[in-house]
Amino acid sequence: MALVFIPSLMQNLSNGEQRVSVEGANVRQIIDNLDSMFPGFKNRLVEDGRVKPNISVAIDGEITPLGMIEKVTEDSEVHFLPAISGG
């Protein structure tokens, strides 16, 4: 199962859990399964079927440009971060 790191500002949804093991082969499934374990996550992360524009998903240290369809493996780490761009 992939290891999802719960951001400190979302740990109110995970009963204080900082890291949660979640089933899923892609980001969409991870978020769906996380939401069924701890309702509210999907609402915080997803808008119109896509990752919210102000949030980035990092899989194994890399911000993914693929959003919900990015593949996740059994030993992946998943992070939700504020989105940034640059100058």
């Binding site: 790191f5 951001p7 240290g61 890399e62 780490e77 992070h79 971060l81």
Partner: peptide, 9 residues
């Protein structure tokens, strides 16, 4: 591991 969570490549 970076302070914001992910691990550096």
């Amino acid at each position: 591991r970076r302070p914001d969570g992910p691990v550096f490549g």
